[in-house]
Nucleic acid binder design. Structure first.
Lengths: 207, 207
DNA sequence: TGTACATCAGTGAACGCGCGTTCACTGATGTAC
DNA sequence: TGTACATCAGTGAACGCGCGTTCACTGATGTAC
């Protein structure tokens, strides 16, 4: 039942995308190869035509999911012209910390996979660290004016990016953690962080 | 081989403590009942004399680990007299965000278990939410002056507690996630957050 | 362009393994008299 | 207090199940001529 190279490449890509989604929802260990393949519309036996092991797929999925996240941040905020960037960043934060994003099946990989990543092998941890670096860089570009900055300003921007990221990730993580058992607390966490970040207490385009 | 009630109760307590440690390190699904029992110095068969299922133990371990964390925060910070509390809080933050704490086998349950908790059943999620509530309350008492506060002040303290917690949890989570693959970045994250929190950018006893 | 054959993506049964859980058994503890 | 017996924490083999992975097989694709 050989298929065309293009179809095979499409299948592979679909497996990685499906994996990105399922791993994000249920963790690496929460999704079996068989589940995954059937979710991608295939039977489990063919998995090893595409990937040497489940771990290889985990790494590929990790890459994909971070690329998507960083690309969205760059497209929606970092690449905006100076006049629009501050508003775009505020918008981004509001969406990140929204009830809708908390309830979404797929969320920020740093929220969904941090704990899984620490417990996995070097390959996954490598990709994860790369992803965080990329995300932090994009975040830095999202909260600073364009053009060259004095070194002192660069440091300040970097510190703000790190602080904002920590608060975003921690906030969403906690909001998701308590959501089912205490929706009011979950909403309170999101709302509080939205207003704190809006007030520029954590980071802003102005600094 | 019946043993005294006291010995049995001691065994049970040791199982829960061992579980708290191992679940924290490897996640709920990363530790088997047999691993756990042998780490506690027992054979796996006896597990069900103490717990109806692994999930029951997970809930008990969740309780224990949160109780310990909240108790430490209360003892070391919240219960200090007014004059010492600000310094105690600064100290607490510095320890929380220290390289030593990042590298410790057992860390803050919100960092270690958030993702696991979301994916578990209602019993665990319930305990987790309770734990977060307790921790936030203790944190509120840790960053405010004692005595009655105006409602406006109460709200501000609450918002600061939430913001500080999100930054602490997110920061430690990220620092742990990238540690093995990028130690420099991991250290940078911790250092940045320490100085941001020290500067009162996130929360302080003064506000 | 047409033909012959090797390649390889996909299929589904099967493998070994580790897991949570159950079981029959042991023998000291706890209790009833 | 002493005796007889039921209780139950601990033991280790065994269970069923799901997992990651392997396998023999299929048949359309890709390629060599």
């Amino acid at each position: 039942v050989r298929i065309t190279k293009e179809a095979a490449a499409g299948n592979r890509a679909r497996i990685v995308e499906t994996a990105g989604r399922l791993f994000n929802e249920k963790g690496f260990d929460g999704v079996g190869v068989a589940d995954l393949m059937s979710a991608a519309g295939l039977t489990h036996g063919g998995f090893y035509n595409h990937f040497g092991s489940k771990e290889v797929l985990e790494a590929a999925a990790c890459d994909l999911v971070f690329e998507k996240a960083v690309a969205a941040l760059v497209r929606n905020v970092a690449d905006k012209p100076d006049g629009e960037r501050e508003a775009a960043f505020a918008n981004y934060v509001a969406r990140y910390l929204s009830e809708k994003n908390r309830d979404a099946a797929v969320v920020c990989p740093m929220v969904a996979l941090s704990n899984d990543a620490v417990r996995q092998g070097p390959a996954i941890r490598q990709r994860f660290a790369e992803g965080v670096r990329g995300y932090l860089d994009a975040l830095g570009r999202a909260i600073r004016p364009s053009g060259r900055l004095a070194q002192r300003e660069q440091k300040r921007v970097r510190a703000q990016a790190i602080t904002a990221l920590a608060a975003l990730v921690g906030g969403l993580l906690l909001a998701r953690g308590v959501k089912e058992a205490d929706l009011a607390l979950s909403n309170e966490i999101l709302e509080t962080l939205r207003s704190q970040l809006k007030a520029g207490r954590l980071a802003s385009a102005r600094g």
